[in-house]
Simulated assay, not measured.
Amino acid sequence: MLTVQENQIIEEIYEAALKPHHWENVLKQVVEFTQSSTAIFTYFDQLRPEQNFIYTINIPIDGIQNYQTYNLDFVDMRIHGELMNTYGLEHAYQIDCRSYAETDNEDLKSFYEYCLVPSNICHLSGVLLEYGKYKWGVLAVHRPSVAVAYEAAELQSLERIAKHFRRAIQIHRQIKHLQHDRSNYTEILDKLNVGVLIIQSDLEVKFVNQYARDCLNDTSMIEIDLHNRLKIIEPYNTQLKKLVQSTFKKNERYSLERHDQEQVGGAMQLYSDGHQSAYLITVSPLKVLSASMILDNNQIALFLSKMQDRKRLSKTLLKSTFQLTAREIEICQHFMDDQHLENIALKCGITLSSLRTYLKTIYQKLGCSSQAEMMRILIEFIDAFQHIE
């Protein structure tokens, strides 16, 4: 059962979710409730930096500035996020930070020297609220070395209020989305079947749509570094930088006078260790996208897609044009990827006889009489993004 003080804090949390200037008062109450000296509530997302925030109580300004200036927010996420993730979301953990002074890990040493020492933090207890490859949210309270470590009952109390801090993050993201002046087109970009990244000349990422976020979470070939800059494996990173630089020059010229005969942007392929083309990238000035979107000469667009998506059929168009069923569309897609009947039957979990029956129906609906004719028709219904040199 919640205590009166816990209920009061929870009520204040939702007030602060709508009125962020109240967070200082909330954290003050959390510090008193947990008998701590300092506290921090932060959300960090490299792919959506406009949503980031950090609220603290009793932490010196030097510690806060160092946390952001030396990219220790990134270090904090990488080190403590991974550790706390082993406990799971909304589960408290604690650590004695004095061990950081003796570690061989340079990141931990920097975190200890620039953040913990100025703030006199020794005992740290935190609850992970959000976690992903490029994001995390955390509520943490701290005690100095002269104090005792947190007891199990105190950690359980922290967990009880932490779940409400997690909901506050969710409310914060929704509000930011509604307030964001680019929300109209970001909703559109998130629905595209191609990755879209808006980047600056130094490769700093300003926006990432959902498809690109999925790609970044699935591969180590393309990453966002601690400075929030796009980075891909060599030798492709050097090629990308040259392509970006040349595109920015075109972007500047485009803003002064449009050169219709001049080729704008460029494309490149990334190959996996097996020498198979894994990703396709196109870099383009934003000016050529749409006058209704961003018009910023300091930013360009990078389009990203998986090689396997080059033959993806439009299910919507096939259904509306030929009245194909979901199963028939699935078979058509398998034919785009692999035209061997035995393999397709195996993937669909049906017999060769059943597959041939399906093909007869598909031929009838498409108005064709052979696999070759069917393939020629299906090619017109590919909805993958075309990366043009």
Rank of each mutant, 00 (worst) to 15 (best):
L346Q: 15
A149D: 13
I329D: 01
E204P: 00
I331D: 03
A278N: 01
N105E: 10
F248P: 07
H227D: 12
L158H: 03
K360R: 11
S353R: 15
S284P: 03
L346A: 15
E330I: 06
Y100L: 13
R160Y: 04
A326H: 11
H80Y: 14
T247D: 03
F74A: 12
R173C: 13
A372L: 09
E234W: 02
Q364T: 08
L286T: 14
A17E: 07
I379W: 01
D73Y: 01
A291T: 13
N251R: 08
I64V: 15
P144Y: 00
E380F: 00
Y363T: 01
F33L: 07
L378H: 08
C368G: 06
A17Y: 08
K365P: 01
D45I: 05
E154C: 07
L341S: 09
V141N: 03
L359P: 08
L108R: 11
A345K: 08
E330C: 02
N85R: 00
K319G: 01
L158S: 04
A140L: 02
N25W: 02
H80F: 15
Q65R: 14
N193V: 05
R327S: 11
K365E: 00
Y93I: 12
D62A: 12
R376M: 13
S292G: 11
E330L: 14
G349S: 10
L240F: 04
E234T: 12
N237C: 07
I59Y: 03
T186C: 09
S370R: 01
I232F: 05
M375S: 06
V196L: 10
W23G: 09
Y93W: 14
E204W: 01
K109C: 00
T69E: 11
E82S: 12
Q200K: 15
K242V: 08
S354D: 11
F41W: 08
M307K: 11
Y55A: 08
D218L: 13
I171S: 06
D45Q: 02
N209E: 09
Y271L: 13
M84C: 10
I379Y: 10
D309R: 03
Q68A: 02
L155T: 00
D337S: 10
K249M: 05
K315I: 08
V26G: 04
Q239I: 14
V30S: 07
T38C: 07
L128V: 06
H259L: 13
L18M: 13
L116K: 05
L378D: 04
S37Q: 11
A92G: 08
S290K: 12
Q210L: 13
M374H: 09
A212S: 12
A92P: 05
K306I: 00
R258E: 07
C332G: 02
L346V: 10
W136H: 14
A153I: 11
F381T: 02
V75Y: 07
N71E: 10
P49K: 04
L27M: 08
A326T: 10
L256M: 13
